[in-house]
Design a protein around this nucleic acid. Sequence first.
DNA 1: GTGGTCTAGACCACC
DNA 2: GTGGTCTAGACCACT
Lengths: 125, 125, 125, 125
Amino acid sequence: MIQINQRDPRPIYEQVKDSLRRLVISGAFAPDEKLPSVRDFATQLAINPNTVQRAYRDLEMEGFIYTVAGRGSFAAPLEEVQDIYINSLYKTFDKNVEELLALGESPAQLSERIQKLHGKETQQS
Amino acid sequence: MIQINQRDPRPIYEQVKDSLRRLVISGAFAPDEKLPSVRDFATQLAINPNTVQRAYRDLEMEGFIYTVAGRGSFAAPLEEVQDIYINSLYKTFDKNVEELLALGESPAQLSERIQKLHGKETQQS
Amino acid sequence: MIQINQRDPRPIYEQVKDSLRRLVISGAFAPDEKLPSVRDFATQLAINPNTVQRAYRDLEMEGFIYTVAGRGSFAAPLEEVQDIYINSLYKTFDKNVEELLALGESPAQLSERIQKLHGKETQQS
Amino acid sequence: MIQINQRDPRPIYEQVKDSLRRLVISGAFAPDEKLPSVRDFATQLAINPNTVQRAYRDLEMEGFIYTVAGRGSFAAPLEEVQDIYINSLYKTFDKNVEELLALGESPAQLSERIQKLHGKETQQS
DNA sequence: GTGGTCTAGACCACC
DNA sequence: GTGGTCTAGACCACT
């Protein structure tokens, strides 16, 4: 289901988190769908169960999944999850834009750049 | 001049780097102005000289300061420094925008948000 | 495996870097093969772990190895590594040749010299 | 006559050496012409006399100038000086080429590259 | 056990 | 006095 890249310098639990987060956000896990158990997932990825545990714990704190003791972990509702994620993106977006504006870049420049990125993307699809 | 937060989870040398980078970019250090000596800065921040040196070495490789053995470290020319920094900001800007677009946000929404941020800023001045 | 020469005026970490770089480029370390741990290597060379780590950190930034915290450091893929190295060789090659040409040496002389060096080498094999 | 660049990370005595070496090789100093005295040169460049002294001492060991106690330092004969320098260039040339050949570059590739560099240079003149 | 960070303190080259 | 290197030894995060 997901891939661990042993050459990625990031900690493995970060890679697991990012992959799962992406899957939940994209709806690949239906809302309230059960995630693989920590043990299964660990053996499947050939990594240590502690590492998976850590990823689940973090994702729960971030609100992307929820855990019911004795029953397992589940994907949070799609809408909540996307709200959380888009909010976090906007937070870094705002900080980023503020700095760029402070350094003399103009709103028009930034908007144009967005247009170009939009062009690329729609072209791909 | 700058503050170290021992409770900040980031390495101390990263905190030092960020603070200095900000000072150099903002022009708080005039171009070619001498930075505090490694030893002075270390005692001033109550940290080890090696930690300060690590920060200086990194910043030099990033192009924000230059250092001459036996003479000291100096702020790089403002223009170079801002170019480097704006480039790095645009790099995260692009990634950020791409994700937002992929999640269904429209270019218009983003541009409008930029306008609002721009309004706030010009109001302050 | 490699030798440190305490009488060499170059910093020890530079000697370590050069030796390792050579081993990786030559394929003596297979791609993705694990390098000795910082501690092991340090005791083996009878130098301080920090010195080895400095070498590893630099080599990672240069792209010759990659390192994953908690797992170890590994040789980068041979092709990438050779590309990087050949590029750096060409950079000094160009500077060298430009100076020689400026001092009146002719392209023909240089080409002939290359032929001779090529002869020696193919003879060896 | 020569320029010290305070932003150059190289030690000042290296900068002085390089500049003088270039002047001697190019014939800007006639063979056996007297170089400025250490003291004069130092005040002229606004640097420490020890630094100039160091440069003169090194250049004498390399054979580019010679010193007569009590009379001063003098440029060595042009022919000698160029031989020395070209030899040193060829030494690094050979090492460089050997490595490139060992990594699979062909003599033809290198010769072609030399041709291109030659073209650029003659174009400039 | 692995790399990453930090400290304390030493020595050297350069100016 | 300045930066650069090195050592010895400690603690932490990750696997």
